[in-house]
Simulated scan of single mutants.
Amino acid sequence: MAATGSWLSHTIDVSGDTLSLAPRSTYQSRLLWLDLARGVALLGMVVFHFARDLEMFGLVTSGTTMTGGWAAFARLVAGSFLFLSGVSFDLAHRGGFRTRPWARRFVIICGAAGLVTVATLAVFPTRFIYFGILHAIAAASLIGVIFLYFPAMAALFTGIAILAMDNFLAPGILESQWLVWTGLSAAARPSLDFIPLVPWLAPFLFGMALAPLLPQEAPRSSWPTKPCVRIAAWPGQHSLLVYLLHQPLLLGVIWVFAQILR
Protein backbone atom coordinates (compact mmCIF):
# COMPACT_ATOMS: atom_id res chain seq x y z
CA MET A 1 0.00 0.00 0.00
CA ALA A 2 1.16 3.50 -0.75
CA ALA A 3 2.89 5.48 1.96
CA THR A 4 1.15 8.58 3.31
CA GLY A 5 4.08 10.27 4.99
CA SER A 6 6.56 9.18 7.65
CA TRP A 7 4.89 11.21 10.44
CA LEU A 8 1.83 8.96 10.30
CA SER A 9 3.80 5.80 10.97
CA HIS A 10 5.28 7.24 14.13
CA THR A 11 2.34 9.03 15.72
CA ILE A 12 -0.79 7.08 15.06
CA ASP A 13 -2.22 4.55 17.50
CA VAL A 14 -1.18 1.18 16.11
CA SER A 15 -3.62 -1.12 17.77
CA GLY A 16 -7.18 -0.17 18.18
CA ASP A 17 -6.31 -0.92 21.80
CA THR A 18 -4.39 2.28 22.57
CA LEU A 19 -0.88 0.87 22.51
CA SER A 20 0.21 4.19 21.13
CA LEU A 21 3.73 4.69 19.85
CA ALA A 22 3.48 8.45 20.21
CA PRO A 23 4.75 10.37 23.24
CA ARG A 24 2.22 12.57 25.02
CA SER A 25 3.77 15.68 23.48
CA THR A 26 2.41 14.59 20.10
CA TYR A 27 -1.20 14.70 21.30
CA GLN A 28 -2.33 16.96 18.47
CA SER A 29 -0.83 14.64 15.83
CA ARG A 30 -3.02 11.75 16.93
CA LEU A 31 -6.17 11.02 15.01
CA LEU A 32 -8.67 12.48 17.44
CA TRP A 33 -11.68 11.19 15.55
CA LEU A 34 -10.34 7.67 15.99
CA ASP A 35 -9.78 8.14 19.73
CA LEU A 36 -13.28 9.58 20.10
CA ALA A 37 -14.86 6.79 18.04
CA ARG A 38 -13.13 4.21 20.19
CA GLY A 39 -14.39 6.02 23.27
CA VAL A 40 -17.97 5.73 22.00
CA ALA A 41 -17.44 1.98 21.48
CA LEU A 42 -16.11 1.70 25.03
CA LEU A 43 -19.15 3.51 26.38
CA GLY A 44 -21.37 1.03 24.58
CA MET A 45 -19.37 -1.85 26.06
CA VAL A 46 -19.70 -0.48 29.59
CA VAL A 47 -23.46 0.02 29.16
CA PHE A 48 -23.94 -3.53 27.91
CA HIS A 49 -21.75 -5.11 30.58
CA PHE A 50 -23.54 -3.11 33.26
CA ALA A 51 -26.84 -4.59 32.08
CA ARG A 52 -25.30 -8.07 31.87
CA ASP A 53 -23.90 -7.77 35.38
CA LEU A 54 -27.28 -6.68 36.74
CA GLU A 55 -28.70 -9.82 35.14
CA MET A 56 -26.00 -11.99 36.70
CA PHE A 57 -26.84 -10.65 40.15
CA GLY A 58 -30.54 -11.24 39.59
CA LEU A 59 -31.40 -7.54 39.57
CA VAL A 60 -32.98 -7.77 36.12
CA THR A 61 -34.79 -10.65 34.41
CA SER A 62 -32.57 -13.55 33.38
CA GLY A 63 -31.92 -13.61 29.62
CA THR A 64 -32.60 -9.90 29.13
CA THR A 65 -29.27 -9.17 27.43
CA MET A 66 -29.28 -12.31 25.27
CA THR A 67 -32.25 -11.44 23.05
CA GLY A 68 -33.89 -8.58 21.18
CA GLY A 69 -32.35 -5.13 21.17
CA TRP A 70 -29.70 -5.96 23.77
CA ALA A 71 -28.35 -8.82 21.65
CA ALA A 72 -28.20 -6.56 18.58
CA PHE A 73 -26.51 -3.85 20.65
CA ALA A 74 -23.86 -6.34 21.83
CA ARG A 75 -23.07 -7.32 18.24
CA LEU A 76 -22.87 -3.66 17.21
CA VAL A 77 -20.39 -2.89 20.00
CA ALA A 78 -18.19 -5.92 19.23
CA GLY A 79 -18.25 -5.13 15.53
CA SER A 80 -17.29 -1.51 16.13
CA PHE A 81 -14.25 -2.55 18.18
CA LEU A 82 -13.03 -4.90 15.48
CA PHE A 83 -13.74 -2.38 12.71
CA LEU A 84 -11.80 0.39 14.48
CA SER A 85 -8.98 -2.04 15.23
CA GLY A 86 -8.78 -2.84 11.51
CA VAL A 87 -8.70 0.86 10.65
CA SER A 88 -5.90 1.53 13.14
CA PHE A 89 -3.97 -1.52 12.00
CA ASP A 90 -4.00 -0.47 8.35
CA LEU A 91 -3.13 3.17 9.03
CA ALA A 92 -0.26 2.26 11.36
CA HIS A 93 1.42 0.17 8.66
CA ARG A 94 0.58 2.37 5.70
CA GLY A 95 4.24 3.25 5.21
CA GLY A 96 5.22 -0.44 5.26
CA PHE A 97 4.94 -3.28 7.74
CA ARG A 98 6.61 -2.29 11.02
CA THR A 99 7.74 -5.55 12.57
CA ARG A 100 8.85 -4.48 16.05
CA PRO A 101 5.79 -2.32 16.92
CA TRP A 102 3.52 -5.04 15.55
CA ALA A 103 5.28 -7.73 17.60
CA ARG A 104 5.14 -5.57 20.75
CA ARG A 105 1.46 -4.92 20.31
CA PHE A 106 0.72 -8.56 19.47
CA VAL A 107 2.49 -9.81 22.60
CA ILE A 108 0.65 -7.31 24.82
CA ILE A 109 -2.76 -8.17 23.36
CA CYS A 110 -2.07 -11.90 23.69
CA GLY A 111 -0.97 -11.37 27.28
CA ALA A 112 -4.10 -9.38 28.07
CA ALA A 113 -6.26 -12.05 26.42
CA GLY A 114 -4.53 -14.71 28.50
CA LEU A 115 -5.13 -12.68 31.65
CA VAL A 116 -8.85 -12.47 30.83
CA THR A 117 -8.96 -16.24 30.30
CA VAL A 118 -7.23 -16.99 33.60
CA ALA A 119 -9.31 -14.49 35.57
CA THR A 120 -12.64 -15.71 34.19
CA LEU A 121 -11.61 -19.34 34.64
CA ALA A 122 -11.01 -18.65 38.32
CA VAL A 123 -14.31 -16.81 38.84
CA PHE A 124 -16.61 -18.44 36.26
CA PRO A 125 -15.14 -21.88 35.55
CA THR A 126 -18.16 -23.11 33.58
CA ARG A 127 -18.35 -20.01 31.35
CA PHE A 128 -14.80 -18.70 31.21
CA ILE A 129 -13.66 -16.68 28.20
CA TYR A 130 -11.49 -18.82 25.94
CA PHE A 131 -11.86 -16.76 22.73
CA GLY A 132 -13.24 -13.33 23.46
CA ILE A 133 -12.77 -9.91 21.89
CA LEU A 134 -9.06 -9.62 22.75
CA HIS A 135 -8.35 -13.11 21.43
CA ALA A 136 -10.18 -12.17 18.22
CA ILE A 137 -8.24 -8.91 17.85
CA ALA A 138 -4.94 -10.74 18.34
CA ALA A 139 -5.84 -13.38 15.75
CA ALA A 140 -7.14 -10.75 13.32
CA SER A 141 -3.91 -8.77 13.70
CA LEU A 142 -1.93 -11.86 12.76
CA ILE A 143 -4.10 -12.59 9.73
CA GLY A 144 -4.24 -8.89 8.83
CA VAL A 145 -0.51 -8.80 8.09
CA ILE A 146 -1.20 -10.79 4.93
CA PHE A 147 -3.65 -8.16 3.66
CA LEU A 148 -1.12 -5.36 4.05
CA TYR A 149 0.54 -6.70 0.90
CA PHE A 150 -2.62 -6.71 -1.21
CA PRO A 151 -4.99 -3.98 -2.47
CA ALA A 152 -7.73 -2.88 -0.09
CA MET A 153 -10.33 -4.67 -2.20
CA ALA A 154 -8.82 -8.02 -1.17
CA ALA A 155 -9.72 -7.33 2.47
CA LEU A 156 -13.18 -6.10 1.46
CA PHE A 157 -14.06 -9.17 -0.61
CA THR A 158 -12.61 -11.55 1.97
CA GLY A 159 -14.76 -9.92 4.63
CA ILE A 160 -17.83 -10.35 2.43
CA ALA A 161 -16.91 -13.99 1.85
CA ILE A 162 -16.64 -14.57 5.60
CA LEU A 163 -20.10 -13.11 6.16
CA ALA A 164 -21.46 -15.30 3.37
CA MET A 165 -19.81 -18.34 4.94
CA ASP A 166 -21.44 -17.54 8.26
CA ASN A 167 -24.89 -17.10 6.71
CA PHE A 168 -24.99 -19.83 4.09
CA LEU A 169 -22.79 -22.67 5.35
CA ALA A 170 -24.38 -25.04 7.80
CA PRO A 171 -23.14 -24.21 11.32
CA GLY A 172 -21.02 -26.79 13.05
CA ILE A 173 -19.39 -28.32 9.95
CA LEU A 174 -16.31 -28.96 12.10
CA GLU A 175 -16.34 -31.06 15.24
CA SER A 176 -12.99 -30.40 16.89
CA GLN A 177 -12.82 -28.41 20.13
CA TRP A 178 -9.48 -27.08 18.89
CA LEU A 179 -11.21 -25.36 15.94
CA VAL A 180 -13.84 -23.53 18.00
CA TRP A 181 -12.09 -20.23 17.31
CA THR A 182 -12.99 -20.51 13.62
CA GLY A 183 -16.69 -20.19 14.42
CA LEU A 184 -17.49 -23.30 12.38
CA SER A 185 -17.12 -25.91 15.10
CA ALA A 186 -20.03 -27.63 16.80
CA ALA A 187 -17.88 -28.14 19.90
CA ALA A 188 -18.18 -24.59 21.26
CA ARG A 189 -18.80 -24.51 24.99
CA PRO A 190 -20.67 -21.77 26.89
CA SER A 191 -18.64 -18.61 27.46
CA LEU A 192 -19.18 -15.13 28.85
CA ASP A 193 -17.72 -13.70 25.64
CA PHE A 194 -17.26 -15.71 22.44
CA ILE A 195 -16.01 -13.90 19.31
CA PRO A 196 -15.00 -16.53 16.70
CA LEU A 197 -13.31 -15.48 13.48
CA VAL A 198 -16.36 -16.49 11.45
CA PRO A 199 -17.97 -13.99 11.25
CA TRP A 200 -16.00 -11.55 13.43
CA LEU A 201 -12.90 -11.31 11.25
CA ALA A 202 -15.12 -9.55 8.69
CA PRO A 203 -15.46 -6.16 10.47
CA PHE A 204 -11.70 -6.07 11.07
CA LEU A 205 -11.07 -6.60 7.35
CA PHE A 206 -13.73 -4.01 6.48
CA GLY A 207 -11.83 -1.55 8.69
CA MET A 208 -8.61 -2.30 6.82
CA ALA A 209 -10.37 -1.93 3.47
CA LEU A 210 -12.04 1.39 4.33
CA ALA A 211 -9.09 2.97 6.16
CA PRO A 212 -7.70 4.65 3.00
CA LEU A 213 -11.01 6.52 2.61
CA LEU A 214 -11.00 7.93 6.15
CA PRO A 215 -9.30 11.14 7.42
CA GLN A 216 -5.59 10.51 7.93
CA GLU A 217 -4.28 13.95 8.89
CA ALA A 218 -3.76 15.47 12.31
CA PRO A 219 -6.40 18.07 13.24
CA ARG A 220 -5.28 21.62 12.52
CA SER A 221 -7.80 23.59 14.57
CA SER A 222 -7.52 24.44 18.25
CA TRP A 223 -10.48 22.30 19.38
CA PRO A 224 -8.37 19.17 20.15
CA THR A 225 -6.57 21.12 22.90
CA LYS A 226 -9.78 21.94 24.75
CA PRO A 227 -10.07 20.16 28.13
CA CYS A 228 -13.48 18.67 27.31
CA VAL A 229 -12.07 17.09 24.15
CA ARG A 230 -9.05 15.73 26.03
CA ILE A 231 -11.33 14.17 28.61
CA ALA A 232 -13.59 12.67 25.94
CA ALA A 233 -10.61 11.26 24.03
CA TRP A 234 -8.87 9.78 27.10
CA PRO A 235 -10.78 6.46 27.21
CA GLY A 236 -10.10 5.87 23.52
CA GLN A 237 -6.40 6.49 24.09
CA HIS A 238 -6.33 3.92 26.91
CA SER A 239 -8.93 1.43 25.72
CA LEU A 240 -7.03 -1.71 26.71
CA LEU A 241 -6.71 -0.42 30.27
CA VAL A 242 -10.39 0.55 30.33
CA TYR A 243 -11.36 -2.87 28.98
CA LEU A 244 -9.38 -4.75 31.61
CA LEU A 245 -10.54 -2.65 34.57
CA HIS A 246 -14.16 -1.81 33.85
CA GLN A 247 -15.65 -5.21 34.67
CA PRO A 248 -13.99 -5.63 38.10
CA LEU A 249 -15.16 -2.11 38.97
CA LEU A 250 -18.70 -2.71 37.73
CA LEU A 251 -18.96 -6.06 39.51
CA GLY A 252 -17.67 -4.52 42.73
CA VAL A 253 -20.14 -1.63 42.65
CA ILE A 254 -23.09 -3.87 41.78
CA TRP A 255 -22.13 -6.40 44.47
CA VAL A 256 -22.13 -3.65 47.11
CA PHE A 257 -25.47 -2.37 45.82
CA ALA A 258 -26.92 -5.90 45.88
CA GLN A 259 -25.82 -6.36 49.50
CA ILE A 260 -27.54 -3.13 50.48
CA LEU A 261 -30.80 -4.29 48.89
CA ARG A 262 -30.79 -7.57 50.78
Rank of each mutant, 00 (worst) to 15 (best):
V46C: 00
A140I: 03
T61D: 10
F97P: 09
G236I: 09
V145R: 14
S222Y: 13
T67W: 09
Q259D: 04
V107Q: 01
L142R: 04
F83K: 00
H246N: 06
W70D: 02
H10S: 08
A161G: 15
T117D: 02
A112Q: 02
A113R: 00
T64A: 13
R127K: 14
L134N: 09
Q177H: 14
G69L: 06
S191Q: 04
N167L: 14
W255Q: 02
A37M: 13
P190K: 03
G69T: 04
A218T: 04
A41H: 02
V87P: 07
L148W: 15
H246E: 11
D193I: 13
L240N: 10
I162K: 04
H93P: 12
A78K: 02
L245V: 09
D13F: 06
L174E: 10
I254R: 01
H238L: 10
T117Y: 01
M165W: 14
W178Q: 03
C228H: 10
S222V: 12
A202F: 08
L174H: 10
R127T: 14
V14W: 00
P199C: 06
A232L: 15
V107E: 00
V123P: 00
C110G: 06
Y27V: 07
M1Q: 11
Q247N: 10
L42K: 01
E55D: 12
G183T: 07
C228F: 11
G69E: 01
L197N: 01
A122P: 01
T67R: 14
L174N: 11
F57G: 04
Q28I: 12
W255P: 01
P190H: 07
A74M: 06
S88H: 08
L142G: 15
G236E: 11
G16V: 10
L201C: 04
L82F: 13
V14S: 01
G111V: 10
R52Y: 14
I143K: 05
P196L: 07
I260Y: 09
L156T: 08
G114E: 05
S185D: 08
T26W: 06
F204P: 10
G16K: 02
L121E: 05
L115E: 02
Q237K: 11
W70V: 04
G183A: 09
A92W: 10
L249P: 12
A119D: 08
P212W: 13
P235R: 09
Q216E: 05
R230E: 04
R24S: 13
A122D: 01
L115A: 15
T4V: 12
V180E: 15
G183M: 11
A202H: 05
F97C: 06
Q216W: 09
T26Y: 09
